[in-house]
Design a protein around this nucleic acid. Structure first.
Lengths: 152, 152
DNA sequence: CACGATTAAATCGTGTGCGATCTATTTGCG
DNA sequence: CGCAAATAGATCGCACACGATTTAATCGTG
């Protein structure tokens, strides 16, 4: 027993015991996995997430999208403007409330989102080397943790 | 059964099924948890990781530190220069090989690292709401996943 | 010993994240 | 109605990440 450690041989620093570091470093690795898959589509990873969120429900406001992606306008506004510049979304002021900006996919944006959803998730799942059940379990664990962290 | 979902009510997008998104979003949440804990020490989260890594083993080269943190010189050089400007580390060219830069903690740097290690991990563990065993299990899972992703 | 290949770090440009602040619009309450 | 408070986005500055390139030092092979 006690043969748990997959990484640290002997002289490991506390870093290896930090769950936060594992999340951080695995996030970096994920990002690196996605980059070559998304580059051909001309989008970044956060842009991919935004397109997927809009694919499900168009006409979201900046706030609503931010709620979904855990981001705020200071991050989203520039990101959305880049998507707009790339011709993938439109930004229109809500006529009923001029403070609100609603975001819609263009035809090209929808096509890019569809293409991404068609190709990327399968390749990522394959690269992760996890069974679907394993991935779902980790997803659930992380969602609970995230919920706990956000509740404070 | 099938009462697994902690987040998605009905109209959930595929986003909720993406393990990558869970990692990404939980990473954001972690970052937000750390910020107020590290702000008083005047360091950021990646800087904290660097100090912890140096606390364990000083005199690391930029490459060695990068290997430990999964970062490269294009990210580390500016980060280390900021730590140097803050008086927490020194950067010295290796006399035997002038290409190599070795990084050492200053007394202040060591003090800040000690102070951080004394206070932060415990608070983070508490905020995570996880038992030690649970956190270790998730850590192990993520380490395996990271290993798989990096092996390609 | 010479010189091309390799290596370590630094530099540059782009795209996030985020705290703080600003602007524009709307709401609410006297 | 009138105007202060609240709300939605946008803007600004700073600090990562990272691909691509550059600079400087060392190595390796002839």
């Amino acid at each position: 027993m006690t043969k748990t450690a997959p990484t640290p041989p002997p002289g490991a620093d506390p870093l290896d015991d930090f769950l936060c570091f594992s999340i951080y470093a695995t996030g970096l690795a994920m990002n690196r996995l996605y980059k070559p898959l998304l580059d051909p589509l001309g989008i970044t990873y956060p842009q991919y997430l935004a397109l997927v969120a809009l694919r499900t429900k168009e006409g979201r406001t900046v706030s609503e999208l931010g709620e979904r992606l855990f981001l705020e306008s200071n991050t989203l506004t520039p990101l959305i403007k880049r998507l707009e510049a790339a011709g993938l979304v439109t930004r229109t002021r809500d006529t009923a409330d001029e403070r609100v900006v609603r975001i819609h996919l263009t035809d090209r944006g929808r096509a890019v989102a569809d293409e991404a959803l068609r190709c990327v998730p399968a390749q990522v799942a394959a690269a992760s080397g996890l069974t679907r059940a394993r991935a779902e379990a980790m997803n659930a664990d992380l969602s609970v943790l995230r919920g706990t962290l956000l509740k404070r």
